[in-house]
């Protein structure tokens, strides 16, 4: 319908952007996996993929901005939609940063910590899937089920706490080990950057919660 034209277009662009961000996270997980298992060349190839997908996500964000400027959504909501898209883009940027760090700085991660590192990425991906489900329900659900959105958002929070636990454990192990200080600090940076993804996804879920609240009478 012409009446909902701009809003529908922005919704579609948002969903496409969401897919791109998920792709970035999935490929970043694959980069980490390949790197830890010794497949450096494959990791590099995947790193270039992340770069490409992140650029495509940027382009989608610009298109969404254009539509918002042309009057999609209520004026007081546009700011929130713009903020949400920017935060989603930040997740893609952060994923690219992680890939750049791993492939550029080549952190030497002892094998005993490989599984925990991969757990961070796996849970981050799971966390984003929950957010994706929440946003899909918000934008495309035939009857926007607020309780379901809240459930998904709650799971995002729970997974973020799980990742925090892993980060805390890993950090403790790193600084208890016999590694030299420089290596410890480098590894800590690697862990922190990897876990930052889940913090940003939790912020995304909070922004979505605010948007949902604004639609409630």
């Amino acid at each position: 319908m012409i009446l909902f034209g701009k809003e529908k277009q922005v919704s579609q662009l948002l969903m496409q952007h969401l897919e791109k961000v998920r792709d970035c996270l999935e490929k970043t997980y694959a980069v980490a996996e390949q790197y830890l298992r010794g497949g450096l060349e494959e990791a590099k190839r995947l790193g270039l993929e992340v770069d490409r997908i992140e650029t495509e996500a940027d382009e989608l964000r610009r298109q969404i901005d254009d539509q918002l400027f042309e009057g999609a959504f209520l004026p007081n909501i546009r700011q929130d939609v713009h903020g949400l898209v920017s935060q989603m883009d930040d997740v893609a940027n952060a994923a690219e940063t992680v890939c750049d760090f791993i492939l550029g700085e080549r952190p030497q991660i002892p094998e005993t910590w490989h599984e925990e590192m991969l757990t961070i990425f796996a849970k981050t991906l799971e966390q984003f899937d929950q957010f994706q489900a929440a946003l899909t329900e918000f934008l495309e659900g035939t009857r926007m089920d607020v309780d379901e959105i809240r459930n998904y958002n709650q799971k995002v929070g729970i997974l973020e706490s799980d990742i925090d636990q892993v980060e805390w454990h890993l950090t403790r192990e790193i600084f208890r080990s016999d590694l030299d200080l420089a290596r410890k600090l480098h590894l800590r940076t690697c862990v922190r950057l990897s876990c930052q993804l889940s913090d940003q996804i939790e912020n995304l879920a909070d922004s979505l919660k605010l948007l949902v609240l604004k639609t409630q009478v």
Binding site: F73, I77, G141, M144
Partner: peptide, 15 residues
């Protein structure tokens, strides 16, 4: 509340 609208449609309807 009985017939919640998807967000894009809710926004367009209100506008």
């Amino acid at each position: 509340r009985r017939h919640p609208l998807p967000f894009p449609i809710w926004s367009a309807v209100l506008k």
